[in-house]
């Protein structure tokens, strides 16, 4: 089965005065049709940049400098602006974190959705507006016909995020990228939005990529999780393997430092010492080695490649020779 999206060896650099600094360093990631994948990592690990690079939305001074991203028989990284515009929205949909700044404050929400439909589907204005109301209904907005006439400031944060989802779905994409869609929302609203996207994923048979820093949230959402650290994938596995057999020391550290509602309370949480490397100051070899309790001399020499974990799920791969060896023993 060919993957819906196949990213190989992606590198992304920031142009800086002192020369380019690498922020994404050789990411390999494949997304299958209809799959739900979580991309997890801390701020600055390159999780958002990786996805933005696919549709040509990288900020100024940041460029994809190597690798490929095959999607529907084309390399997205080689497409020009005109072709990318056709991909955005109609083939790859996006939902961003902050619905406050992603909506145009002086256009009624129905018209903003209709605008996307006119561009992507070539619908006439009337038809596009009727479809916009249907989409608002699809995302669970009560009174969609009236709400289509509302301005963004008249809606609550949760409602705005629903509008953003309606826009992301307008082109009926095969792949939806949800970039921290619930980070700005309260926990009860977060639960509503997550349920909504999950339900729509099945209804519209899309693949969904969740970009998030929230391991607890992604546990119930994804089929598979890729853990990113400093611009590389350090572990990639089915969700059950990640939580039952976390193998990379970073994944283990992250999971251990998560406070939970179950288990013992009022004790010190295990924490990972130190901070991730800054772009341009990447250590040679494994980027996590300086913070790693299991590091050996070899870790500082070669960048580890993803390799299968012996004795675990066949799709469970980790970029840590020390742990792979230990699992084999």
């Amino acid at each position: 089965m060919t993957a819906l999206l196949d990213i190989r060896g992606l590198t992304i650099d920031i142009a800086r005065d002192g020369g380019p600094a690498r922020v994404v360093d050789g990411i390999d990631l494949a997304i299958q049709q209809g799959e739900s994948v979580g991309i997890v990592g801390e701020s600055g690990c390159g999780k958002s940049l990786t996805m933005l690079s696919l549709v040509g939305l990288l900020p100024n001074r940041i460029r994809a400098t190597g690798g490929s991203a095959m999607f529907g028989g084309r390399d997205l990284l080689k497409l020009g602006p005109k072709e990318l515009r056709k991909v955005r929205g109609s083939e790859i949909g996006f939902i961003f974190q902050d619905p406050m700044t992603s909506l145009n404050p002086v256009i009624r929400v129905g018209d903003q959705i209709a605008e996307a439909l006119i561009w992507q589907k070539g619908l006439a204005k009337e038809a596009a507006q009727a479809r916009a109301v249907e989409l608002l209904e699809l995302v669970g907005i009560p009174g969609p016909a009236e709400r289509a006439r509302a301005w963004p400031h008249e809606l609550s944060g949760g409602m705005r995020q629903r509008v953003m989802i309606a826009m992301g779905l307008a082109g009926h994409p095969r792949l939806l990228i949800a970039d921290e869609p619930t980070t700005a929302l309260d926990v009860t609203i977060q639960a509503q939005i997550v349920d909504l996207v999950r339900e729509l994923k099945d209804k519209m048979q899309m693949a969904v990529v969740w970009i998030t820093h929230d391991l607890a949230l992604i546990a119930g959402l994804a089929d598979r999780i890729a853990v990113l650290y400093a611009g590389t994938v350090v572990e990639d596995a089915p969700v059950s393997a990640i939580f039952e057999r976390p193998t990379h020391p970073y994944t283990r550290g992250l999971l251990a430092s998560l406070p939970t509602l179950a288990g013992a309370a009022m004790e010190r949480l295990p924490s990972i010492g130190g901070t991730p490397p800054e772009p341009g100051r990447r250590p040679p070899g494994c980027p996590f080695a300086p913070r790693c309790a299991h590091a050996v001399a070899a870790c500082a020499e070669a960048v580890p490649r993803l390799a299968p974990v012996p004795g675990s799920d066949p799709r469970h791969r980790v970029a840590c020779p020390v742990m792979t060896e230990r699992a084999a023993a």
């Binding site: 926990v187 391991l215 949230l217 546990a219 119930g220 969700v239 059950s240 939580f243």
Partner: peptide, 18 residues
């Protein structure tokens, strides 16, 4: 409390939706 996601894919808590 029931809206808080738990870091466990098998967590089968009855989630009470507000």
């Amino acid at each position: 409390l029931s809206a808080v996601p738990e870091p466990d894919p098998k967590s089968a808590r009855s989630r009470q939706r507000l």
